[in-house]
Amino acid sequence: MFSRLTPYLLVLPLMSFIAVFTYIPIAASINLSFREWDFLSPTMPFVGLENYRLLLSSHEFWNSVRVTALFAVISVPIRLGLALMVASYLVRETLPSRLLRGALFLPSVTSTVSIAVVFSWMFATDYGMVNAFLVSLGLGRVPWLQDPQLALWVVIVVNTWKQLGYDIVIYIAGLQAVPQELYDAAAVDGGRKGHVFRRVTVPLVMPTTYFLLVVSVIEAFQIFTIVDVMTKGGPAGATDMLVNMLYRVGFTLFDIGQGSALAVLLFILLIALALFKSRVLGRRVHYEA
């Protein structure tokens, strides 16, 4: 009826692209991470673990690790907490609820560069809307993106604004899977709204929360665009995320060895997170269901 080759031919295009643009580059990155190269020299000498040693002994690298981790640790709970609250309110299929869901979801499919540009304006010191508002209240202007203590918070706000809708959509799907009787039962028991939320909603969407938690942590460790447009990692490294450092080391300083070493470390970290997800999460989901 058909040749034994058929399935191979069907997967060939996808597999060859995956091989060329995903798997071979991993090997290439590992190889480059043991070498010294600046794009210019005709040779790339082998330097062993030197690039890793330099990286791990640099202030810059640990600053990036700290900033990225801080970003993940602060922004993910805020996102998930807000999203669950809003989702539990929007779970009903009424017209305003559907419209509002759409409004909240829109930013998550919108261009990140656009969002970063618009918020750069919002938080601009001189002509920004936020400061204009503060001034109209009789308060002073705040240098949002120039102050190392504030810039990371601005990045967190912008990222939350963008991603919130996605989290809400997922939570709503999770909530809609919860049998309505459970709510009715809780309501009959005379549970107040906050009580029902804590005792019924939160535990029941735990699998969804785990899923979102891991997905958003992985995503948080790969944040780049908002920072690149708004702060370039500044001021004074206060928003210098790992991928922004990778881009700078690779494509501004052209230290290809160290850039590759950084890419490999990031790779290991994210794979570990992903494996953690499939392990722990897989078990949890079954347990809860």
């Binding site: 643009f21 580059p25 992985i218 590759s260 890419a263 790779f267």
Partner: peptide
């Protein structure tokens, strides 16, 4: 092969940035 496809979901794209540029 299917496992190799699924595994790409975990692989951060940034690891291929420099090698893809070079190739």
């Amino acid at each position: 092969l299917f496992a190799a496809v699924v595994a790409t979901l975990m692989i951060p794209s940034h690891i291929s940035l420099i090698p893809n540029y070079l190739s």
